[in-house]
Amino acid sequence: MHIPVTEPPAAAEAEHLEQQQAAIARLGHELRALVEATVRTAASPDTLHRVADGVRHVTGQLTGRRRARTEIPEVDGFPGGPRMYSPVVGAGSPLAPPVRITPTDEGLVGHCTLGIAHEGPPGYGHGGMSAMLLDELMGQACMAAGAPGLTVSLRMSYHRPIPLETPLRVIGRVTGTDQRKVFAAGSITTEADPATDLVTADAVFITPDPDRARTLFPSLQGGA
């Protein structure tokens, strides 16, 4: 007699999550390509109108329930896990570069390339993008050090403009703690010249107490 083998529920759930994340990442990749093409095109008005109609049609296919503002996506691992729709590291976000993060002996290093969609001065990245990249890397460094917190102070120093379409290194590291305060520093360089700082920053993060965390993140069962 043949007895069918079924996957354990946990394994089936893990496989479904992996498939969902892969699909989200694929859509995010194509959306980033669309955004980049949109901000670079010199197409005619007729073409732009036709494409806009097509985009509206595609948007209409994303039907079903939409998550609430405070709801954590089921594909995310918050806090401390993947954030699929983060505008910095999210593989599913059309806004993100996205940054790929790896640990180092001193903290974290992120690798990314900014496109024309992230432009400030012609040919260079918007200063706000630099702030967002560094805030993310320093915040994740706090998390990796076991001291997660929310940004309460971020001080930026812009030394040189960030070139677009150039591989970048973004560094984040914890420099000290004082009770619930966590101090961090960060920098942005190019991959080709990691010794030359383009932008540097230091920040202060605060680890919220459990009651405050439950207020800020009601979707977290039992608080953070």
Rank of each mutant, 00 (worst) to 15 (best):
M1V: 05
I3D: 10
V5D: 10
E7M: 13
H16I: 05
H16C: 01
E18V: 01
E18H: 11
E18P: 03
Q19Y: 03
A22R: 07
A23T: 09
A23W: 04
A23F: 04
I24P: 02
I24K: 05
R26W: 02
L27D: 04
G28E: 03
H29Q: 09
H29N: 03
E30I: 05
E30N: 10
R32Y: 02
V35R: 08
V39R: 12
V39H: 07
A42F: 01
P45C: 07
T47Y: 10
A52N: 11
G54R: 08
G54I: 03
G54A: 13
V55C: 07
V55H: 06
H57D: 12
H57E: 14
T59C: 12
L62I: 12
T63E: 12
T63V: 14
R67G: 15
A68R: 14
I72H: 05
I72A: 03
E74R: 12
G77T: 11
G77D: 15
G80M: 05
G81R: 11
R83V: 08
G90Q: 12
A91C: 07
A91K: 12
G92F: 14
S93G: 08
S93K: 12
P94V: 12
P94E: 05
A96L: 13
P98K: 10
V99S: 06
T102R: 14
P103S: 05
T104A: 06
L108N: 00
G110N: 00
H111N: 05
H111V: 02
C112T: 08
C112M: 13
C112L: 14
L114W: 13
G115L: 12
G115E: 11
H118Y: 15
G120F: 05
P121I: 08
P121E: 04
G123F: 09
Y124M: 04
Y124G: 01
G125S: 04
G125E: 07
H126G: 12
A131G: 14
M132A: 15
L133V: 03
L133Q: 08
L134A: 02
D135P: 00
M138P: 00
A141W: 00
A141S: 09
A147P: 06
G149H: 03
L150P: 02
S153P: 06
L154V: 04
S157F: 10
Y158N: 11
R160S: 04
P161W: 06
L164Y: 07
E165T: 11
E165D: 15
T166L: 11
T166N: 09
T166G: 10
T166Y: 09
P167H: 03
R169A: 08
R169L: 15
R169S: 09
I171C: 00
V174I: 10
V174M: 00
T175N: 01
G176F: 01
G176E: 01
G176N: 02
T177S: 15
T177P: 03
R180Q: 14
K181L: 11
F183I: 06
A184K: 00
S187I: 00
A192V: 05
A192G: 04
A195N: 04
T196A: 12
D197S: 14
L198W: 07
V199W: 01
T200Y: 00
A201L: 03
A201W: 00
A203F: 00
V204D: 01
F205N: 01
I206D: 07
D209L: 13
F217L: 15
P218E: 12
S219L: 11
Q221A: 15
G223F: 13
